[in-house]
Design a protein around this nucleic acid. Structure first.
Lengths: 134, 134
DNA sequence: ATAAAATTAGGAATGATTCCGATTTACTTT
DNA sequence: AAAGTAAATCGGAATCATTCCTAATTTTAT
């Protein structure tokens, strides 16, 4: 995913182009790791001192719905990162300190034999510390 | 895990035996699925009308530390269930409606080749709906 | 029975997230 | 380019799960 792809997706789905949206996307494009709403606020604050959490969460929610960002929950807090795939389905190793990720290509669902559950989703994440944060 | 095992573990670790703790454990023993703090409160309320969330969370936290219950986060809310293993490491298929689980014996970590991350933990959960809740 | 330690009630505090009414902005049509 | 309208934003209040705090009570061990 990159900024102009993301802007196209927004346009296709009837969302307007705003300078704030572009700056959100640039942040995610530069920082290819999991960020919190607060991280986003701090990055934007110099340019938009009055930016509200409402705007951040509303946009992150739109981005997530459209597949522009991926969302996960770490330690009770939502984290978001630029969707890192045209490569399709994948999982992540995540640094609990800085949010950096490494992709894991293998998906454990391939070994699952169906039972009476109707499966809608799954999560496979590996947590730890990246080289810099150890 | 069963109630008397759990009580033994508590005693071994210097925690006192209280009637509330026993009732917590009985609930988890009867309902072998993921419950929220609110679920616990509602179950206990008839017997202990003044029971506070503080007591619930404090005990659930002790139980989790001692391995008596397992914890996970579903839709931004903590859920707890009686630890279902003397069988050691395992994962779960979880019903998003009622919290019922099916155990998954296979662990995807066996296929992970180490990289520069220092791995501390991992999560593999499959979400869906059990037969009754479909 | 007593003392020390642990637990509890009850409510207040926290912190992330969401909601809401009023205002501003981006896009469309004239 | 100006007007109209629908969406986006602001600012702050509300919500919700969870945690913290203190005085009072209960339990265990002596």
């Amino acid at each position: 995913m990159n900024v102009s792809e993301a802007l196209d997706i927004l346009k296709e789905n009837g969302y307007k182009h705003t300078t704030k949206r572009e700056m959100f996307l640039e942040l995610f494009s530069n920082e290819r790791r999991y960020l919190t709403a607060k991280d986003v606020l701090e990055y934007m604050k110099p340019s938009y001192p009055g930016l509200s959490f409402d705007t951040i969460y509303r946009n992150l929610s739109v981005f997530t719905e459209l597949g522009i960002v991926e969302e996960t929950e770490l330690d009770g807090e939502k984290h978001f990162r630029f969707s890192c795939s045209t490569k399709g389905h994948h999982h992540h190793m995540i640094c609990l300190q800085c949010g950096k990720t490494n992709a894991i290509e293998a998906c454990p669902m391939k070994d699952i034999t169906p039972d009476e559950f109707m499966i809608t989703d799954h999560k496979f994440e590996i947590y730890g510390y990246c080289q810099e944060c150890q």
